[in-house]
C-alpha cells in the first residue's frame, strides 16, 4: 500500500491584529492507505489547525506559510480554492466536533445530503436520494427513508453525528478527517460512534485521521499516533509505542494525568503544571520546556529535532541526545537529521 498523505514542514499561522499566531510550526508526518492516524494534544496544540490545513479550510486571517501537503500524489497547497473544493467531500471528507451545530438548521437532512452527493457525482435527484437513504442505513439510522425528510433539530446528537458521517462518506472518500467526533456526545454514544467509524473503515477502506484530546479514544481505534504540543509534533509512533514506550516527557505527563483501569487504586493523578505556551510569542526552544520537569539549558534555546527510536517511533526531545543525562524511562535514540 502506498502513502495516502504526506505532510512536510507545515507552517500555519493566523495573522491577527495582535500579531502572528503560529498555530502549527513545522509538522512532518505521513500516513499509509488504510491507516487510522490519531493526533492527540490539548486545545491549542495545533492538531485541528493541522487537519484544517490539509483540507484547505484555514479561514482568514490564517494562512499556510510553508510546507507541502501531498495527498494521493497531488500537492494540495498548490491547488486553487476551487480545485480543492472539488476534492472536499469527494476524496477528502471531514467531520467536526459538535454535531449539534454542524448541520444547517434550516434545511432538511435530505436537502443537505443530496446537495453533497450531487455536487460530486452525476446522479439524478432520485438516485441521489436513494444513495443518501442507503448511507443513512449504513450508519445505522432506523427508518432512514422516513427520517431523511426531517430537520436536524429533530435528531439527537448521536444521530446527527451519524448523519454527518453518512454525508462525509457518501462519495467514498480516500481520507476521512474526524475532528473530535465523539467529544461532544454522551459516553455511551461516544463508543457507538467510534465503533461505527471502525466498522465503516474496514468496509469502505477509507484512511482516517482522528483528532482528539482523549487518549482512551486513540488507544481504542488508532494504528499510529502523533502527539502535538505548542504547534509542534512531540512524538510519533504506533499505539503500543506511544502507550507503553513513551519517550517524550509530555507524552509521559499526559499518561500520568489520565485515570485508567490499570492504575493502582492508591496511585494519584499527576497534572502537568503550568499552561500551554502563548503562540503569539512561542518559546525559542522546545515548546514544552517551561513545563518540563527535565528541562535542560538547551531545551530553552533550541527546539529539539526528531530522534528516531526505531523505524516507526520517534520523539522530539533533547533527552534522547547522546550528550544528555540519563532520565529514568526515556531511552536514547538517534537524531534523524543529525
Amino acid at each position: 500500500m502506498g502513502k495516502i498523505l504526506e505532510v512536510n514542514n507545515l507552517h500555519t499561522s493566523f495573522f491577527t491584529h495582535l500579531g502572528e499566531v503560529q498555530a502549527v510550526r513545522g509538522s512532518d508526518f505521513s500516513m499509509e492507505e488504510g491507516d487510522i492516524l490519531g493526533i492527540v494534544g490539548e486545545s491549542g496544540s495545533g492538531k485541528s489547525v493541522t487537519a484544517l490545513s490539509v483540507i484547505g479550510l484555514i479561514d482568514e486571517p490564517g494562512k499556510i506559510k510553508e510546507g507541502d501537503i501531498i495527498f494521493d500524489g497531488k500537492d494540495l497547497t498548490e491547488l486553487s480554492y476551487k480545485e480543492l473544493s472539488d476534492l472536499r467531500g469527494n476524496d477528502i471528507s471531514m467531520i467536526f466536533q459538535d454535531p449539534m451545530t454542524s448541520l444547517n438548521p434550516v434545511f432538511t437532512i435530505k436537502n443537505q445530503m443530496m446537495e453533497v452527493i450531487r455536487r460530486h457525482t452525476d446522479m439524478s435527484k432520485a438516485e441521489a436520494k436513494q444513495h443518501a437513504i442507503k448511507m443513512l442505513e449504513i450508519v445505522g439510522i432506523p427508518e432512514a427513508e422516513a427520517r431523511i425528510s426531517s430537520y436536524p433539530h429533530e435528531f439527537s446528537g448521536g444521530m446527527r453525528q451519524r448523519v454527518m458521517i453518512a454525508t462525509a462518506l457518501s462519495c467514498n472518500p480516500k481520507l476521512l478527517i474526524a475532528d473530535e467526533p465523539s467529544t461532544a456526545l454522551d459516553v455511551t454514544i461516544q463508543a457507538q460512534i467510534l465503533d461505527l467509524m471502525l466498522s465503516l473503515q474496514k468496509e469502505i477502506k477509507t484512511s482516517i485521521i482522528l483528532i482528539t484530546h482523549d487518549l482512551g479514544v486513540i488507544a481504542e481505534v488508532c494504528t499510529s499516533i502523533i502527539v502535538m504540543y505548542g504547534g509542534m509534533i512531540m512524538e510519533k509512533g504506533t499505539v503500543d509505542e506511544i502507550f507503553y514506550e513513551a519517550s517524550h516527557p509530555y507524552t509521559i505527563g499526559l499518561h500520568k494525568s489520565v485515570p485508567s483501569m490499570s492504575r493502582k487504586s492508591n496511585e494519584r493523578l499527576v497534572p502537568i503544571a503550568g499552561s500551554p505556551p502563548d503562540l503569539l510569542k512561542p518559546p525559542a526552544g522546545c515548546p514544552f520546556s517551561p513545563r518540563c520537569d527535565h528541562a535542560m539549558q538547551i531545551c530553552l534555546e533550541l527546539p529539539a529535532p526528531m530522534f528516531d527510536i526505531n523505524k516507526t517511533h520517534c520523539s522530539a526531545c533533547w533527552l534522547l541526545h547522546e550528550d544528555a543525562p540519563k532520565v529514568e524511562g526515556i531511552e536514547k535514540g538517534e537524531a534523524k537529521n543529525g
Binding site: I55, L57, S85, D86, L87, R88, G89, N90, S93, M94, F96, S102, L103, N104, E115, V116, R119, H120, M164, T167, A168
Partner: peptide
C-alpha cells in the same frame, strides 16, 4: 464550515 468541507 461543514458545507465547505463537503466541497459545496
Amino acid at each position: 464550515r461543514t458545507a465547505r468541507a463537503n466541497g459545496i
